[in-house]
Each structure stands twice: as structure tokens, then as C-alpha cells.
């Protein structure tokens, strides 16, 4: 019983540590967006912001939602979901390369 209570204490401690990490990462992502040279380098800024968001999201999913403790089937379902999600994210690529090269500006006025 005592061991059990200890394990529970450890669980609580883990949540609070993840909470701390999330707060720090929030500060980081806001902080780096104020760095002028990073903001000027847009691709890098996007990469950093999404990386931080990805780490934060994984922390929430793994520890708050206990995904680390889950097994089996739900992983496959989520993997399927993520795959289709990525397919969806390809929509812009699909759309912008849709127009036969050289006619983009004439058709939509958005080509470069």
C-alpha cells in the first residue's frame, strides 16, 4: 500500500514536471519570435516554432493523455489518422502545382 502511495506521488510529480516544461517551452517559443534575425529568416522561424509546438504537443499527448501507457490498436488508428492528416496538409502543394506551368498568374493572379 505504501509503495502504491509512493507510485502515486511520483505520478503527481511527473505531471507537475511536465507542466513546468510546458511553461518553459511557451516562454521559449514567444521569446524566440522576438529575435529579429530569426524572424527575418522565415523558414527557420517556422521550423523552430513548429518544433517547439511539436514537443509541447507530444508532452501533452504522452503524459497528460497517457499515450505512452497505451498499447496496440489505438496507435494504429492514430497512425492512420496522422497519415491522412499529412495527406490533407499536402492540399496546398496539390493546389499550387495544379496549374499548368506558366499560366498560373493568368488564371489566378497568385503565381510568382
Amino acid at each position: 500500500m505504501a509503495a502504491n502511495a509512493e507510485a502515486h506521488q511520483a505520478e503527481l510529480k511527473k505531471y507537475l514536471m511536465v507542466f513546468g516544461a510546458l511553461l518553459v517551452l511557451t516562454a521559449v517559443t514567444v521569446g524566440v519570435s522576438y529575435i529579429p534575425w530569426l524572424a527575418a529568416n522565415h523558414v527557420l522561424a517556422i521550423a523552430v516554432a513548429l518544433l517547439v509546438a511539436g514537443v509541447k504537443g507530444s508532452l501533452v499527448a504522452c503524459y497528460f493523455m497517457h499515450l505512452l501507457d497505451e498499447r496496440g490498436m489505438i496507435f494504429w488508428i492514430l497512425a492512420l489518422c496522422v497519415l491522412f492528416f499529412i495527406t490533407l496538409l499536402l492540399l496546398p502543394v496539390v493546389t499550387s502545382s495544379e496549374v499548368v506551368a506558366g499560366h498560373a498568374d493568368k488564371l489566378y493572379g497568385v503565381g510568382k
Partner: peptide, 21 residues
């Protein structure tokens, strides 16, 4: 079921889609 998620644009061949796609 799986494949049905990656064929949708065959409804849109006439939208001016490039040949690769």
C-alpha cells in the same frame, strides 16, 4: 477504404491540374 483517401482529385481533372498530379 485506405485507398479511397488518396484518389479524390480524379473528380477534379478539369480544374487545370498539371499532368504530373
Amino acid at each position: 477504404g485506405f485507398m479511397s483517401f488518396i484518389v479524390w482529385a480524379h473528380h477534379m481533372f478539369m480544374t487545370g491540374m498539371g499532368t504530373t498530379l
